[in-house]
Simulated scan of single mutants.
Amino acid sequence: MMQSLYTASTGMLGMQTQIDTTANNIANVNTIGFKKSRAEFADLMYHVMEYAGTSTSDTTKSPTGIEVGLGVRPTAINKIFSEGSLKQTDNNLDLAITGRGFFKMELPDGTQVYSKNGSFKIDQNGTIVNSDGYTLVPQIVIPPDATNINIGTDGTVTVIQPGQTQATQIGQIQTTNFINPAGLHAMGDNLYLETDSSGQPVEGIPGVDGLGTLRQGFVELSNVELVVELTDLITGQRAYDANSKIITTSDEMLQTTNNLKR
C-alpha cells in the first residue's frame, strides 16, 4: 500500500485541528477576557532507507541519506496571553488588568479558579461576584447604603456612605500570576484552573512585583485579531484541500497499477 495515503490523512487530521482551533478563536472574538489559542505541529517519524554518511566506496561516504517522512501530528494547542484592548464601560464594578495577572474566584465547592474577565456584579448579600455568582477572592462586601464605589489601581476598594464626607476602605482586590499561564487548564466560562505545568499561584497587590494594575470602569476585550484568524482559516483550508488531492492522486496511481495487464 502506498504510504502517501496514510501520510496525507495525518495532514488532513492536523489541518482539521487547526481549523477547529481557529473557529473557536473567531467564535469568541467578542468574549470579554478571552485568550486566543494556536495549534502547533511536528513532523512524525521517518522511514530510513539509507543513513547519511553511509559508505559508498572505500574512500567516499554518502553526503545525505534517504529518509521519507510519515506525516504530521499536533503537539500542542497553546494559549496566547497577550493583552487585549480595553473598552470603557463606566460601570464601577467593571475591572481590567493592565499587565500580568488574573482575578481569583471561588466555586461553590471551594475550588479556586482564575479569570481575566473583570465584569463583576453584586449579589443579594452585597458580595462582589462574577456573572455566574462565583465570589471574588478575597471576599469584598459592599455596604447596602453605599452611594459611590471606587477601586484604585492597586485594588483598594473604598465607598462613600450617607452622612460621610470621607471615603471608607472596605477591602483590597488582589491579583494572581503564574510563571507559565499557558499551562493553566481552560475550564470554559472564562475560567482557568491551576495545574502542575502552570506553576504555583503568586498572589499580590496590583502594581507590585510585576503584577498589572487595575482600571475601574474598563473591561479587557478578547485578544483575537479577525484578520489573522481568517488568514489562518484560509491557509488551513487550502492545506486540507492539498492533502485530500494527495489521497486522490495516490488512489489514481493504485488504480493505474491495478489496471496493468501482461
Rank of each mutant, 00 (worst) to 15 (best):
I140M: 04
K121I: 09
E40W: 06
A39C: 10
G163L: 08
A239Y: 09
L107S: 03
T21V: 06
E67S: 15
G212A: 04
Q174W: 02
E229R: 05
Q161F: 00
N28K: 09
P201Q: 06
N259W: 10
Q3L: 15
L184T: 04
E225K: 10
D189F: 08
D241S: 12
K104N: 06
V29P: 00
E229M: 05
L107N: 00
G11L: 11
N91F: 08
V228W: 07
L93P: 02
M253Y: 07
V48A: 12
S115E: 07
I77E: 12
A239C: 08
G152A: 13
I149S: 10
A96V: 00
G163W: 10
K36C: 06
I77F: 10
Q169V: 09
E252A: 13
F34N: 02
D123G: 08
Q88N: 13
G212M: 01
A23V: 11
L191R: 07
E106C: 08
L230H: 04
S198G: 11
T127H: 07
G126Y: 03
Y6S: 13
I97C: 03
L230G: 01
K261H: 12
G155N: 01
S250M: 05
G133T: 05
P138L: 11
K116G: 09
G133Q: 05
Y240E: 06
F103E: 04
V137Q: 15
G53N: 11
